[in-house]
């Protein structure tokens, strides 16, 4: 009797929780959506609706003029360039990070502590921009596309995340493969990667976003305006502060917001494809046991 009671109580409490949780998450989403909504509808508003002190929540007009203005302006080239750099860069980063993370996750690795300490030191001791530039220049990378990929290609943050994830995979899985005589690369590809899809997906996305939003390194390493990325050009358009000699066409809020939307479009498109993998891990969990 007691048990049944308990169960009813439980499920009632559960129902309350589910409703409460739903409402809470809805409110949280609202906090995230309202500013984004404002960006979106301002970007498609007509000039006269964004002037002065307005904060649009209800759309007043619709026009894609600002977007066509951006596309017309020759920014399309830098858009393509940025996508290529981000894609190649992400691939480069993953091919370094993933094997390194796998190796460091091996508990019996020779010199594991030494390697880990060497890596942690780089996290603690920051490198100043000037010495960094001097070194990148020494390797002859300044003002080339390589400068946007190689010097910033590895993130210790991501490396440690991957390493820790892989070390949580049961050793038995790897050991049995080793006994079967598989070499390390095969183990990595055939066993580790399928099990780690969720974290790989997350890290890939992080890398992509890092490459996509990179600003200060691009400005410092690239001299030539025909080689810069979309972010640099967009930011210039958005936040130009003028000197005495220039007199740029004035930039309205709708144009700025359209730039913001354009600037995140590729990531926005990419995300749903990658998100799928965050959840697919559930099925793979059972293999692990």
């Amino acid at each position: 009797m007691k048990k049944i009671n308990n169960k009813i109580k439980n499920s009632f409490g559960r129902k309350v929780f589910v409703v409460f949780n739903g409402i809470l998450l809805f409110c949280i989403c609202l906090v995230f959506i309202v500013p984004l909504w404002n960006v979106l509808i301002t970007s498609v508003a007509k000039d006269q609706d964004v002037l002065g002190n307005v904060y649009l929540i209800v759309p007043k007009s619709f026009s894609l003029k600002q977007y066509s203005r951006i596309l017309q302006s020759g920014y399309f080239k830098s858009f393509v360039r940025s996508i290529i750099i981000a894609t190649i860069g992400t691939m480069f980063s993953m091919t370094i990070t993933l094997p390194a993370g796998y190796t460091l996750a091996q508990k019996n690795l020779v010199g594991r502590n030494l390697f880990m300490n060497l890596i942690i030191i780089t996290m603690i001791f920051d490198v100043g921009l000037v010495p960094f530039y001097v070194v990148v220049r020494m390797y002859g990378l300044i003002n080339t596309y390589f400068a946007l990929v190689i010097p910033v290609g590895l993130s210790t943050f991501n490396l440690i995340l991957i390493k820790n994830f892989i070390s949580s995979i049961p050793d038995s899985l790897i050991e049995s493969a080793r006994i079967d005589g598989a070499n390390e690369l095969i183990i990595l590809i055939k066993i580790i990667i399928p099990v780690s899809i969720p974290i790989i997906a997350a890290i890939t996305l992080f890398y992509f976003i890092q490459y996509w939003n990179r600003y200060i390194e691009v400005v410092m390493f690239i001299h030539d305006n025909t080689k810069t990325t979309l972010q640099v050009l967009l930011r210039t358009l958005m936040f130009e502060s003028e000197s005495a000699t220039t007199g740029a066409e004035s930039v309205y809020d709708n144009f700025k917001m359209a730039i913001m939307v354009m600037g995140m479009l590729p990531v926005l498109v990419l995300y749903p494809f990658i998100q799928r993998y965050f959840i697919s891990g559930i099925m793979l969990g059972s293999i692990k046991g």
């Binding site: 780089t122 010495p131 990148v136 010097p151 070499n183 390390e184």
Partner: peptide
Amino acid sequence: FLLLLLLPALLWYLLFRYIPM
């Protein structure tokens, strides 16, 4: 083989972290 997988990362750390440091 295992160490070989780590080599690119170590090289990167040397070139782009330790030398500028």
